[in-house]
Amino acid sequence: MPEAPTDHRHDGDRPGGRPAPRGGEITYVAKNMRLDLRLIAEMVPPGATVLDIGCGDGTLLAHLSAEKGADARGIEIDMAQATQAVAAGLAVIQGDADHDLAFYPDGAFDYVVLSRTLQAVERPREVLRQMLRIGRHAIVSFPNFGHWLLRWQLLSKGRMPVTETWHREWYETPNIHPCTIRDFFDLCRLEGYEVVRWLAVDDRGLKAPWTRSPRLANLFGEQALFLLRRGRR
């Protein structure tokens, strides 16, 4: 399958994961920060405790620490990136979402962030459970496999889609669990997670205006971003 950049993890040639949005369509939270990271940063209130899973070189952590006075920590699977983050004075450990979350105590963080990594973990459902166990909120971003271009390519060519976002062949991709926006809504319902906010962005980096229709967002949204809260049951 072609690939969506899994956070920063397997995408050495494109450290930002995706090209910078063209034009000045969106409000810049921070220069040179990946779009979804900027949107995530907007969701985190000042002074929060944050765990960023798949934090890469720590761009988001550095921003949250400096701009929001957050107590921000990270986990990164890639040793070179983890070392770079630590060398920048950030509290980052080398580890991975599937194996290291279990060791954190309940409610240790206000926000647990997983950006563009969910589709690449071994057990996404378990990772989400852990996120909402150790954090009061979870912020999850993922590339939407329901985007119209992917659907069209599969329909017209009968082959796994290859796009800018999903660019690695099916036999090489680390993205073993792709899902659509509607799939993700279903999982949240199944697990009893409250969707506090959600949004989709198109391939130009614009916030998609389809927040009232998950079906439209699922067709035109290239990336999805969810803010979840543990359910009350």
Binding site: A82, A91, Y104, P105
Partner: peptide, 21 residues
């Protein structure tokens, strides 16, 4: 070292960890 890191995580401590190749 990883066992130390996991214990520190369980203690909600601020920790950085790298394994150097």
């Amino acid at each position: 070292s990883r066992a130390i890191v996991r214990a520190l995580n369980a203690a909600a401590a601020n920790v950085s960890f790298v394994e150097i190749t």
